[in-house]
Amino acid sequence: MLLQIKNLHVSIEGKEILKGLSLNVNRGEVHAIMGPNGTGKSTLASVIAGRDIFSIDGGEILYKNNDISGWSVDKRANEGIFLSFQYPVEIPGVSMVNFMKTAINEKRSYLGQDPIPMPEFMAKMEEKKQLVEMQAKLTNRSVNEGFSGGEKKKNEIFQMAMLEPELAILDETDSGLDIDALRVVSNGVNKLRSSNNAFIIITHYQRLLDYIVPDFVHVLYDGKIVKSGTKELALELEEKGYENFKK
């Protein structure tokens, strides 16, 4: 099993957010997590990525059969966990090229490999840019600086393609996207799906799941997964709303 979350309890500043969440993800699977605002979806994403502002009060997260509670954020990333941010951060003065090259080389160094040769790196950048139909010249641009909402999200998928994660968590990647951008982003994700990796897709709306068809859909409510099912569950949610799942 790629990811196994057992009875996870998480709080921030004394406020309990996740209240006994369990989730199993195998390679080759796409899981959608849906739910209303403030139920802990983004917290779950951040906690898997290793954000230290949260306190883990109980339960465990096993990734590739390792308890990762002691792993730094960068170690998790280098072990293949990728978080696509709901609000990608602008980093003025750090160029996309420098940023991506540093990230790739840190991973290679972590895996005991030599740094990527520059021509290979530039070719890879070009190839992955096309995957998400990015028009922008990245060479001289700072990370996310001056990017439109759509460009920022494309840039997240672009980085995912560059880093080739085993577990990708997409935190509300569809929010703020127009239909064209949604299609591009979804196509990118679909092309990256393989039997070796897995996706957790966090979203409010069923709309994204028309493009990225999930194997499983989970309803997260009040810090717990209250219902799991297949893609039909998403349609049911769209129709009836979340009210029916509140217990």
């Binding site: 730094s72 954020v73 990333a77 280098n78 978080l83 990230a103 972590y110 980085q159 880093l163």
Partner: peptide, 17 residues
């Protein structure tokens, strides 16, 4: 955090910033 989430160590992230 964003940079660390891409695998960049905190020391290198600080240096880049």
């Amino acid at each position: 955090f964003y940079m660390q989430a891409r695998g960049i160590s905190v020391e290198n992230a600080r240096r880049l910033l």
